[in-house]
């Protein structure tokens, strides 16, 4: 029993049985339905006094775009947000668990929780359930202890603090751009432009990323959301 289970990884059975582009026609109830995944570009960077988070808005099922205006940046607390990539169901469930636990923690603490804490909760959940989850996360936000912070939690469930991060299928196209152009201590406007540009570049090269560029600027005082529509992206296509 254990032998063949070891030979056949669980993940394989997810996609094999389904016809391309037509997720609901496979007449076989013994297999799970095709997963919805956020083939994604996520870009996050620290600047003086806060963080900027950016994401495209395309959610796909196989070859079909399930949602062209989705929100991949989810709120976990007043000043803490998470960028989600991987399986939409997994990351949504993960986020709602952390939202719940962080909320309880905040009430118990009687003050704003730290980004560090939020990231740690995500890490615990991602690591403990790594065999069942497909989730790449970037947790970012602002707290009074350490200011703006970014924690990257890739597939296996490690947690690293980084000054800037890119994740999702589109991230490969822009890592070099980010390494070359990121400077510590940018102004808010500079950082926003940098992050939006990086996301737009990834969108233009990655088929699974697309739609608009949603951005979020988190500082001590406020959270500002912005959208650049797909036809106004800051790149020459």
């Amino acid at each position: 029993m254990m032998d063949f289970m070891a030979q056949r990884p669980v993940g394989q059975e997810f996609v094999r049985h389904v016809e391309d582009g037509c997720p609901y026609r496979a007449d076989d109830v013994m297999k799970p339905e095709q997963a919805v995944s956020t083939g994604t570009t996520l870009v996050v960077a620290e600047f003086d006094g806060g963080v900027v988070m950016c994401a495209d808005t395309r959610t796909s099922t196989g070859q079909y775009c399930a949602n062209r205006a989705s929100r991949k940046i989810s709120k976990v607390h007043d000043r803490i947000f998470v960028c989600r990539s991987g399986s939409a169901a997994d990351t949504q469930a993960l986020t709602s668990f952390v939202l719940h636990y962080l909320g309880q923690h905040a009430v118990e603490l009687g003050k704003q929780p730290t980004v560090n804490t939020a990231a740690n909760l995500f890490k615990i959940m991602a690591y403990n359930n790594k065999d069942h989850l497909l989730a790449g996360l970037i947790v970012a936000g602002y707290d009074d202890k350490k200011g703006g912070q970014i924690y990257s939690i890739p597939l296996g469930g490690t947690r690293v603090r980084v000054p800037y991060a890119a994740d999702g299928s589109g991230s490969g196209y822009i890592k070099g751009f980010m390494d070359a152009n990121y400077r510590p201590g940018m102004s808010k406007a500079e950082c926003l432009e940098f992050v939006q540009k990086a996301t737009a570049l990834a969108i233009s090269r990655d088929g699974s990323s697309g739609g608009m560029v949603r951005s979020l600027v988190i500082t001590k005082d406020k959270v500002e959301e912005a959208v650049i529509e797909g036809n106004k992206l800051p790149v020459d296509l």
Binding site: L109, N116, T117, N120, I124
Partner: peptide
């Protein structure tokens, strides 16, 4: 500490 990556507040 393991769950929240922070020292437990004395009150708590």
């Amino acid at each position: 500490m393991n769950a929240y990556c922070e020292e437990i507040p004395p009150e708590l």
